[in-house]
């Protein structure tokens, strides 16, 4: 019995300590971000300047992050949703309207990223990184045109069984629809059936459907449909790697930092949001994860090889083929989900 009492009082003590700490917000902050996306140098600098220690928890897909946040009680302060999910986060009331547009460093924001469709005027979020999604190819093995989705949707013989495609519904669906000559958010069932058949047929020639570019380093894959920043990192290992901008249409993405509505440390989080809008800090984000950020003047602090990398600088003649994944109507999204689950199984 005495042991039980000791145990109970210990629990009581621990919980009192816990609530005392949260009452004064403490010098801590919790960031829920994509895997391999957060610069440790950035966090160290933030801690040196403010004394606030940031812990990072990682996720691998928008759906995972959304499901966790909707369940509530995560203890996370900040999250980094993609543009095509931001609207859901806002509508579901998961985000705090922290008004980054009224923060001191907002003056550094590139004007092209202010009035974006997913967060008009930037009342909730600021850009973390943005990029494009296209074919990444080892040109030692493939000599053809790289500016086409045919590399992974109608793979040439030399790439068969050596292709990886990420298990990311919207990215894959967007590319396949554009490749087949359709427009994003089309609900034309006859057309979508063709898209489904194309994807199911192409899948036979893929090796895997997974995240990560590292398998290109070991030549387990010779081509991937993947993200431009990762393509840059792959080229650092194997110099023959090239990244393409398909003429059929490719999608752009942007992940933006927002503060959660139930954040335990909202004031610390606001400091962080303002912090990353300073050019020298935004550059740290890019230097680590090798994608572009949305802050003017950050180029001056970026690694020179990254700043001028072809993966991060779309050739002028191919810019027009880039597009955004707007949120499609529910009934259209259900058709896409149906194709997607068929493909994944």
């Amino acid at each position: 019995m005495r042991n039980l009492l000791t145990g109970l009082s210990a629990i009581a003590l621990v919980s009192t300590l816990g609530s005392a700490a949260s009452a004064q917000e403490g010098k801590v902050l919790s960031l829920y971000n994509w895997g391999n996306y957060t610069s440790p140098e950035l966090l160290a600098k933030f801690e040196a300047e403010t004394g606030i220690k940031v812990t990072v928890t990682e996720y691998d897909s928008n759906d995972t992050a959304l499901a966790k946040a909707r369940a509530g009680g995560t203890g996370f302060d900040m999250v980094v949703p993609s543009a095509n999910f931001m609207q859901i986060w806002i509508e579901e009331g998961l985000l705090l309207e922290s008004r980054p547009d009224q923060m001191e460093n907002f003056k550094n924001m590139d004007a092209r990223w202010i009035d974006v469709s997913w967060d008009q005027g930037r009342h909730y979020s600021v850009p973390w990184q943005w990029g494009t999604i296209g074919p990444v190819v080892a040109t030692e093995f493939y000599k053809g045109d790289i500016n086409t989705h045919a590399i992974w949707l109608d793979p040439p013989e030399e790439l068969e069984g050596k292709i990886n495609v990420p298990p990311e519904k919207n990215d894959v669906m967007y590319a396949a629809i554009r490749y087949m000559g359709g427009e994003w958010c089309t609900g034309d069932k006859e057309f979508l059936k063709g898209v489904r058949d194309k994807l199911l047929d192409a899948k036979q020639h893929w090796l895997s459907m997974d995240y990560g570019i590292e398998r290109m380093d070991s030549r387990d894959t010779l081509a991937q449909f993947y993200y431009n920043g990762a393509a840059f990192r792959a080229r650092e290992v194997n110099p023959d790697i090239r990244y393409g901008y398909p003429k059929e249409g490719y999608s752009m993405f942007m992940d933006s930092v927002a503060i959660l509505a139930d954040a335990p440390h909202p004031e610390n989080a606001k400091l962080f949001v303002n912090f990353i809008m300073a050019p020298e800090n935004a550059a740290l984000i890019s230097n680590f994860a090798t994608y572009s950020n949305g802050i003017l003047g950050s180029e001056a602090f970026m690694r020179p090889d990254l700043k001028d990398a072809p993966e991060l600088n779309t050739p002028a003649e191919l810019v027009e083929f880039g597009g955004w994944q707007d949120v499609c109507p529910t009934e259209v999204d259900e058709l896409y989900t149906s194709i997607w689950t068929d493909l994944m199984q």
Partner: peptide, 17 residues
């Protein structure tokens, strides 16, 4: 490599995407 699912992965797919 996520291409050939087992039941655990199929279940995860339903709770995810």
């Amino acid at each position: 490599g996520g291409k050939n699912m087992m039941m655990g992965n199929l279940i995860e797919l339903q709770f995810g995407q």
